[in-house]
Design a protein around this nucleic acid. Sequence first.
RNA 1: CGGGGCGUAGCGCAGCCUGGUAGCGCACCUGGUUCGGGACCAGGGGGUCGGAGGUUCAAAUCCUCUCGCCCCGACCA
Length: 579
Amino acid sequence: MVQRITRALVPTIKETPAEATNASHIMLLRAGFIRQLGAGIYNFLPLGLRVLRKIEAIVREEMNRSGALEVLMPALLPADYFKETGRWDLYGDTLFRLKDRKGGDYHLGPTHEEIITDMVRREVRSYRQLPLNHYQVQTKFRDEARPRSGILRCREFTMKDAYSFDVDEAAAVKSYETMREAYRRIFTRAGLTFRIVQADSGAIGGKTSAEFQILADSGEDAIVACDNCDYAANVEAAEVGDGPESIDPRGTLFSIEEVHTPGKGGITAVAEFLGVGASQFIKSLLYTTPKKELVMVCLRGNHEVNEVKLAAALGVAEVHLAAEADVVKATGAKVGYAGPIGFKGRVVIDSSATRVSNGVTGANKTDYHLKGVNFGRDFQAEKVDVRAASAGDRCPRCATGHFKAYKGIEGGHIFILGTHYSSKMRAVFLDEKGEEKPMVMGCYGIGVSRLVASAVEQHSDADGIRWPLAIAPYHVHLCTLGNDAAINTAAETLCQSLEARGIEVLWDDRDERPGVKFKDADLIGIPYRVTIGAKTIAQNACELKARTQRDSKAFELISLADAPERIAQAVHAAVRVEV
RNA sequence: CGGGGCGUAGCGCAGCCUGGUAGCGCACCUGGUUCGGGACCAGGGGGUCGGAGGUUCAAAUCCUCUCGCCCCGACCA
């Protein structure tokens, strides 16, 4: 299939659009793949759509291979189903809501757990009908508080969502593992560098979930990965191994001593004032829960709280740092002097802070701290794991590794949901013994349109995009230089031969100067560029150059007779990805 | 939702402070010269200055309201 560029809307632009700040957004706009229609709403132009379709094709192939079967659910949804599970209220402003002419409540689908659960519960009665795994590739709508970064975070986007239904937890784990493998193949085939990381399941869903994080400095998610074993996690969910200071046995325990620390509210200031390290501090932070309970959280002075882990440890949906007035009221001191000793209320302590010996804490008295404080002897608290993981922390899984920090774009997320939706919606079946049981569900998402941008984040240089062959809009970018009849004839013949070999060609047949064509070819980023000009036609030849090759002179001169076979060979070799 | 910024030709911007009938570069059209890494010369077309209201003899410019977009943060199963 050959596409002449003069017959397609491929509006490349030289200048960087003002609104774009990250690489993928800039490149996709400049190369004419997408155009913005509104905040978080984009047109996909011909080249952009071809990339999207290529990724969809890989997704479908691998989902089908895994045994999942495609369905299609509506984007326009009656509110009943979300009302049934409570998400009509829980989803809040992120849900695009609308009314029909009769005043009935509707919304645009942000995700489809309820809808597929309804589809399945209507039809499935017996364990003999399970397991099931169905997926769709569909447009999703979420009224994001702040859409940003081009098509990385949109209000309307393409998502592949799959849902599995199993008879029990063990079977659900199998489905989950199958999806994990399918995802690994999808991301690998799409040419993406990624890590599978342990993730937070959020308020809804079970305990098991993993994110497929595409590594990119522009990513919004912070992840840590062990430099020795394969443990990796979103920092929101990362467990933390004990650091060296935590395994030191306690030495002599001193008695508590109150010290005057006038005007020294922060850890850094007090540490300097007392001449001790921040890790000797047991810092105390006050958090409020949705039920307005005030909880004191103690951890080492050099550690930070992971609020997601804290909320999970406290068994609440979310936590917020307490307001200054509440701190003053609860501790009787200005902010900066809170401590567990004498505090009346719930106190939790991060396990690494329990082994601080002769630590420093606030005295719950303005301008005073306590020295020689020891957990267990001087105060009690519930032990929890709430500290935020960071680079350099010891890996919780292996004995020797340490964390390295990365940034990632969440390209996929797989969950074992358990019976959360099936219980609420009575999606039940009869097992072998005739007992009624809720189905055990899993759900699996891939941000298909987000992968388009993610690929550009990973594959571009100063000149433009460098598409992995498997998802490139075309395999070959043909540049004819000059409007000579012999050149055009040779180009047409070559195009036909390539087409016969299954090679997709974008032919830049514009009447433009060579420089313009080469610049645009680099910008658009098709993996192979073939050039036919006066110089090459004189030798009955053309040039073949890979986009990954920076040196503009680094091309291969091939006779026109050999060209189709040689080019096809290069393309077919590159498209084969080991998975 | 809090903070900041920006809306002037298709794109990137100047003009606004200090009101006087809108300009530059790129792109586009015509002719010519060019032609292997974003050419040059000459001529030309295109703008209700985001919208509404107000002040004024006069508003892109000053005032009020409003809509949109971007960035930081909060948020984002």
